[in-house]
């Protein structure tokens, strides 16, 4: 069964298809809903291209929800943080992870 996740981006246009590292929040109902993971995943706008993928909802930095979810296949779970000093931009560090 497909699971649902949400991720946040600075701008909706920032997100591109393909393989990348991103923080995702698990939307499975229950007391651990919104638990965060850092994963390397393959993303696609088209669910048909990732038939065994999960659903990924996308929100902008003001929390606006993109109406159509993407599809995501988790390739690898990473420790739930990235290198960096407090107050540094997390997305810059994420880009370095590739």
């Amino acid at each position: 069964m497909k699971r649902e996740y949400v991720t946040f981006v600075r701008r909706l246009s920032d997100l591109s298809e393909g393989k990348r590292a991103l923080f995702i929040k698990d939307l499975t109902p229950g007391p651990r809903k919104y638990d965060t993971k850092l994963v390397r995943a393959e993303l696609s706008r088209d669910a048909a291209r990732l038939p065994d993928g999960d659903t990924l909802w996308i929100r902008s930095e003001t929390g606006r929800l993109q109406p159509q979810p993407w599809s995501m296949k988790v390739l690898e779970e990473l420790p739930p943080y990235v290198p960096g000093q407090p107050w540094q931009d997390v997305f810059t560090s994420l880009r370095h992870l590739g």
């Binding site: 946040f8 923080f23 965060t36 850092l38 930095e61 003001t62 929390g63 739930p80 943080y81 990235v82 290198p83 960096g84 000093q85 407090p86 540094q88 997390v90 560090s93």
Partner: peptide, 14 residues
């Protein structure tokens, strides 16, 4: 402890 060398996603918040 506030970690000096690791960061993660936070926000946004109303």
């Amino acid at each position: 402890e506030v970690l000096p060398d690791k960061i993660a996603h936070e926000g946004p918040f109303g």
